[in-house]
Design a binder for these strands. Structure first.
Lengths: 105, 105
DNA sequence: CGTAATACATCATATCACGAAGTATTGCGT
DNA sequence: ACGCAATACTTCGTGATATGATGTATTACG
């Protein structure tokens, strides 16, 4: 997919992957893979950004000798998802403008 | 609208605004305004990029003592619009993942 | 006569996705 | 026993890009 197009979905997609319950980086990548592929460096950057924006909380725990950072979606994170639904409506009006009546198609 | 979300639409929206016949910068901004607002510096940057990518052709002509640059969409530009339609399908699958089943909503 | 509108250009800045490379552990195949 | 893939997260540099600020120049209007 076009990178620019992807950009608008990355943040909300990560939030969506976590919203049903605690998750962690590696798991999120695997869960999102069928929908949207992203590199590890991208995901961890996004997780840090969302945490900084108060949309995620983190706790670190050990699992099989490896450290994992478990993320949870906050109210603000859920508000972001709700906001996204509204923004998508605007996206759809733009989409219709872009694809409408292409040579009588 | 969220800037990141907007990014994926800017290029194709400009192409769409020109596809029905020659247009020029100032006109494009006004035509797109109801759908997507963008600053002049952004538009002229995009026009230059699309021209560089062979998706637009330009001719300069004088109109009422002012110079105007008239743009036309090339075959490659139209191919980009067709490609966008396909990419949008992928966008929709991601969208459904993001908005699905939000607390039984 | 000044101000808005038309029309385009340039520059500096901030955001951001990503590849590359690194650290460290577990588990599996041969 | 040894090596390699998988798990798990981090840091750094780079390139793409949207935008505000600023500039130039003309026309139209009150």
């Amino acid at each position: 997919m076009d990178i620019q197009l992807k950009r608008g979905l990355l943040d909300v997609c990560v939030l969506a992957a976590i919203r049903d319950g605690e998750s962690y980086g590696y798991q999120i990548i695997k869960e999102m893979k069928p929908y949207l592929e992203m590199s590890e460096s991208t995901l961890y950057t996004i997780l840090k950004r969302l945490e900084g924006a108060g949309m995620l909380t983190v706790r670190t725990a050990e699992h099989d000798g490896r450290l994992r950072k478990y993320y949870n979606v906050t109210d603000r994170g859920r508000a972001r998802l709700a906001e996204f639904r509204e923004e998508w409506k605007e996206m759809m009006t733009v989409y219709r403008f872009v694809v409408r009546e292409e040579n009588g198609k």
